[in-house]
Write a protein that binds this DNA or RNA. Sequence first.
RNA 1: GGCGCCGUCGCCAAGUGGUAAGGCAGAGGUCUGCAAAACCUUUAUCACCAGUUCGAAUCUGGUCGGCGCCUCCA
Length: 556
Amino acid sequence: MSLRIYNVLTQQKETFAPIQPPQVNFYLCGVTVYGRSHIGHLRCFLSFDAILRYFRYRDYDVRFVRNFTDIDDKIIARAAEISAGPEGAWRQDEAYANYDDAMWSERLDEDALIRERAAGQDRHLAEVVADYFIDVFHNEDFQPFDLVAPMSEPRVSQYIPQIIALIEKIMANGFAYESAGDVYFDVPTYHAKTQSYGRLSGRDVAQMLEGARVAPSDKKRSGPDFVLWKQARPGEPSWPSPWGDGRPGWHIECSAMSVEELGQPFDIHGGGKDLIFPHHENEIAQSEAAAQMPYCHTWMHNGFITVDGVKMSKSLGNFITIAEGLKMAPPEVWRYIVLSTHYANPIDFSRTREVQGAQGTEVVRGSIDIAFDRLEYFYESLQKAAQQLAEAAVDGSDAAGQAPVDDARVDAIKAQFCAAMDDDFNTARAVATIGEGMKVLNEFCDMKAKAAAKLPGGASARLSTVAKIADILREVLGVLGLPAGDPTAVLEGLRDFSVAQRGLDRAWIEAQIDARLAARDARDWARSDEIRDALLAAGVALRDGPKGTAWKVLRG
RNA sequence: GGCGCCGUCGCCAAGUGGUAAGGCAGAGGUCUGCAAAACCUUUAUCACCAGUUCGAAUCUGGUCGGCGCCUCCA
């Protein structure tokens, strides 16, 4: 089976062929560090995380680079706002129209922390802002998610010499011009020579030129031209260059960092759909104009998270930060939600849509509850298998050496998982495959002794089959980045989360269960049911098993 | 206005030419002192219209509805 990937550049699925197998050079656009990340960023990184893990699983040598954009207008703007302080006029800005008290409080606390950190440092406040949010990215927002670590995480501020060299090269090739301290990429000239501008985003340069109106005061020669180097304005961070003090334009940094880290051309470039134009289109133009060779073979773009069908954005105030998201659900639940949809499709959280028959319930919660249930199902199944295997080893009827039952469904698990992932990383199908596998696992776990005795190989073949299925399932879960270790630990984690969320007390729950067990021993069914109903009312469901009583917190 | 995407069972979501994966919810059953666990069975012709084809949810044209990018954006 070969791996097929939808390439945005060619608008079709292509069989993936690395430039230098088994190496896969992969560049993912990271974040601009001017604020907290939201679940849209999370979606992007979790989607690509599963993709990277699958490459590794297929024995590719993945060289993964994810950058930080730490020089940018928004960072500078944020620094200016922090300097102006809480009383500044910036608070009347339209962008903050949707801020409520909680958001303001959080925002101003953050500003205070940054101001504190900046004190005594002889650096531009914008640099401190960037540093601060890089720390938050690593140590808070994404720390709980167990993302595959990049080989490197280049920052624009550390690549100024390479950026300047790249711009010089583009100018030397005649595709950029200086204009009053700025340097612009010359789109019409470039396109006239290469016919390649607009290939990624499906844009037509002639039309762009027609529609463009270049104001006389504009430093640009034509509308589609974009800035490679911006002249410094007073009070902004800047670096010396052949064109005077200034800073890089928005797109050039990714061109410089990706090629510096991965070489040109490299295999795959990823990012959000909103980056296709102009960011990625311009990256291609710059890099190819400089090196006169292809920039990147395959372009992959993830879909958005939308709320009520509309893209989350700061200006609409409809975004959910990762910090908020983690109050709603633990990391593996978010990962499950992300994996349940193909990476290129949108994930919609509508607040108004009907959910499970209950009008007005938020789908955010509905999605979380379903993901919770499925994860519990997965890990309860694995836990059951692990317990059976552990007990068998203890009582000496170990199945070691016994061949697992030859069941086509068992072999199908991994094959179907790989087929799904091979088909443009279809994690939704891959997750469905895992669900099917869990079904087969449960079937063998719950098999009656009489039925097990009839298996080819006898009763001990049942256990060896359980072991085999569980191994396969843990393996494929790990490929998606879902927990592959001790299932009990996962379940405890999920339960602790729910207990805390419901404001319950573990000790009380356990005491109730003990009391009920005593009643059951006395065959006092009425008392037993009374306790069970009381727990149920509190949101705790019980499940009696041969080894005692298990409990779980109900969702919703 | 330009470019592009989407519309699949009550809800979520796969499926890009061969006759609709999976999950949730619903119904029935096995098991169980009871139990919302587990397992089994069961529930759609794919927004609409017209074409291409032996055959289309899948291709073409059109209609309606939703969205994205074109300014910063994962």
